[in-house]
């Protein structure tokens, strides 16, 4: 449920609007639910509204944790 996607803010517009981008596709959304955004921030968008920021550092850490699982395997297998 609750289809939402991570997008990058590429322009802030008046009236709580912003243009976000994913994979070269741009859409104007509302950012009224998230304060203090700047261009370049990543936000998670649901039904045309940014719900929250996406934290790039946390994303990298999560991916690193996932990759470690594979490295463990290699160690065991080798």
């Amino acid at each position: 449920m609750c289809l939402a996607i991570p997008t990058r803010v590429i322009a802030l517009l008046p009236d709580g609007q912003a243009v976000v981008e994913l994979g070269g596709v741009r859409k104007t959304i509302s950012v009224e639910l998230v304060d203090d955004l700047t261009v370049g921030d990543y936000v998670i968008v649901h039904v045309g509204y940014a719900l929250t920021r996406l934290d790039p550092e946390e994303a990298e850490q999560t991916l690193a944790l996932m990759r470690e699982a594979g490295i463990d395997t290699a160690g065991v297998a080798g």
Partner: peptide, 12 residues
């Protein structure tokens, strides 16, 4: 196409 893939993400 990457943009078609991205548009699909937007629209589910």
């Amino acid at each position: 196409d990457p943009q078609v893939a991205a548009a699909c993400e937007f629209l589910g």
